[in-house]
């Protein structure tokens, strides 16, 4: 595998983003009763953030040039 440094950095950035998203205090922001599109707020936030992370990783991996 080509050790494309820029791809690695993008993925590491996604990792850091995930660390922030899945941690206090951002979680606390959504940790309250309430619903969005009929889905509990926290549940919606976590799955949404999760899906976005996966999307970003897929983008970094599949669109790399090596």
């Amino acid at each position: 595998m080509n050790r494309s440094i820029i791809t690695g950095q993008r993925l590491a950035a996604v990792f850091l983003l995930g660390c922030v998203l899945f941690n206090y205090p951002l979680i606390a922001l959504f940790n309250k009763p309430g619903e969005l599109f009929d889905i509990p707020l926290l549940y919606f936030f976590l799955f949404g953030a999760w899906a976005i992370l996966i999307g970003l990783m897929a983008l970094a991996i599949e669109r790399r040039k090596d």
Binding site: A12, G18, C19, F22, L42, Y43, L46, W50, L53
Partner: peptide, 22 residues
């Protein structure tokens, strides 16, 4: 929602696989 960290952790780690796992 406390069951989720078990699966969020691997997702985060996958971001570092490019360096570590490789």
């Amino acid at each position: 929602i406390g069951f989720l960290p078990i699966y969020l952790g691997p997702t985060l780690m996958a971001g570092l696989w490019w360096f570590v796992m490789l």
